[in-house]
Nucleic acid binder design. Structure first.
Lengths: 192, 192, 192, 192
DNA sequence: TATGAATGAGAGTTCATTCAT
DNA sequence: TATGAATGAACTCTCATTCAT
């Protein structure tokens, strides 16, 4: 049943968040999922094999949040601010999971899957920038595809600096948010 | 003796690069270092405990390279280009190590140490921007501290997108480099 | 299954007797029991954790022997003599095990369990003395509970002096037996 | 120097009491003694080899206490009571050490040394009973040697029941003391 | 005598994986 | 499909012992 597979994924997220991927045993996951040890292997070949499913889940969560919160009627800079807000909020809430996702790379042979998983995210950002360009909100000469990726990298890396690599207080986080936003605005040509 | 500790760090880097952190056994490291199993534990409590020392080593390598290559007599934009070149080159050469460093984060309780390790890097970047501001090369209103951190995040995350999370061809990498550089130049006010 | 646990206990007794508790490795026990190394840990957390189960076994053995050999139709002094004989015989046969049991005490955190294990033994002795008192065989004023415990201590400690702490010849052992019996008889009021 | 050897013995007692003999490492002892790891081996071949020295120390302590406290001018039953008091007090204070001493047997090849160590104790008790017999305080027919050993076993085993194998409250301990004393008095012929 | 860094054999323990039910 | 007791290879880590100083 799909149900069992999903319970494994949810439990894996839950346990990974609590103990970290290293210290998590298959037995922890199945205990949390309330299924038998052997059942796990009917769906995944190892704990690392669950990671792509988890990443997909997180990606969807982020995109859903962005789509729900970005109001297309507002000026582009406001929309961009919302994107930053959402990415920061989700990186905060799921900080361990993001650490896992970025790190899982080193541990696994699932590298190739990540690109594909990020694709919808990149697509959305390209559309977002394309629309802004069409509206004349951002610089005409921008290479949309490259810029979309760089922008996502910029926002995420800054959010990670805030939540993964240090324990900043809210005020500092706010300053970083403003800094990254201004940085992006100048870079995109919203300001000059 | 410090000598033994250093040999462990060097061997750890060496073996981690070859096998990945997961598949590396302590016994692999000590074999490579030519010391006894027990000696390892005189200096580190686990293979993960070596990570901060490795990160420090990488940080130093990067800074040394940057300092060696950045020519202060050239215009700021040229210098910035060199920084990007160096970060890309080192991220390329030590891609597995960088993957480890990020993955180490998730696996270990050494999170708090990273901030301290990055400090010299941030310091250099602050000086770099301060000088540029003094020379009137970049926007007057910039928050130096925040911008230094955001900029490092921007360059590194893009480099990682190139070398860690995908296998881009040289041409694409070059386009990304140009994109990130232009992005930064606009953001800093080198262009408008 | 209970079967596996029991095989571990029996093998532990067997191997402990041969090699002593110190020199016994878990691997010795599982080899003797014909089970896998990991299976041991499903039932016990260490070799010392087997000790309470072993003590229980010995206690039962002793009580069974006593009950089988004490003939209630004989006079009380004869019955007491039989008890001494049985305790001496079992202490002799299982001298290593008894040494283990006492040594186990020092080594483990299972101290508290011993009291509970001795209980059935104490109970039998209390019944035994109660009956004797009812028959007018022993002193009326005796505190049954305390005396039962003291008496067991007396007999066991003497048996241990014979078999554990020294290598006495049969003649000396016989003299000690007589001495302890006379000692007890006077103490209980069988003689005066 | 004798000084170093003595510091090892004192530290061994100290550490054994705190951690138990099993869990004590040579390194614990030398750390406590403030000497180097290698120095230990100049005086003892293993941690178990320290046990006879410790036992000797305890034996002396007990005898000294007995001699200091037993007042030969008081009636024999009073003197016997004092012996019981002293043995109980010392067993209480050094309960872990006594557990070690009795248990050490199982672990070591020093078995033969124990008998010799107990000898002075037995000798004192024989003298004690001999004197009592000469004074007509106890039964004429008693086998002094055997009875001395049995009596020591009786008192010690009861004290151990109180302090080693259970955690009795003071009242219960007092009742046991009375019981063992009365037991001994009847056995020796002080009462009838 | 005294040191203590270095050793390395070998013990304990884990845990992914299997397979009879 | 689902189970979970059993497995045992493979790992980490300890710690008694040595020896050059």
């Amino acid at each position: 049943m799909e149900d069992k597979k999903d319970r494994i994924i949810q439990s894996a997220i839950h346990v990974f968040r609590e103990k970290g991927i290293e210290k998590t045993k298959i037995s922890d996951i199945v205990k949390d999922a309330g299924i038998a040890q052997g059942t796990f292997y009917l769906y995944f070949s190892s704990k690392f094999a669950v990671m792509p499913s988890i990443a997909e889940e997180m990606m969807e969560k982020t995109l859903v949040q962005i789509k729900e919160n970005v109001d297309e009627n507002l000026p582009f800079s406001k929309q961009l601010e919302t994107v930053v807000d959402v990415v920061f909020a989700i990186t905060d809430e799921y900080r361990e999971i993001f650490a896992l996702i970025y790190s899982g790379l080193a541990a696994t042979d699932y590298l190739k899957e990540w690109e594909a998983i990020y694709e919808p995210y990149y697509w959305w950002m390209r559309d977002f920038l394309m629309q802004a360009k069409a509206d004349g909100a951002i610089r005409e000469a921008l290479d949309i595809q490259r810029t979309a990726e760089v922008l996502i990298g910029l926002i995420e890396s800054t959010a990670e600096q805030c939540f993964l690599y240090s324990q900043m207080d809210d005020e500092t986080i706010d300053m970083k948010k403003k800094a990254v936003l201004m940085f992006a605005e100048y870079a995109l040509g919203l300001r000059d």
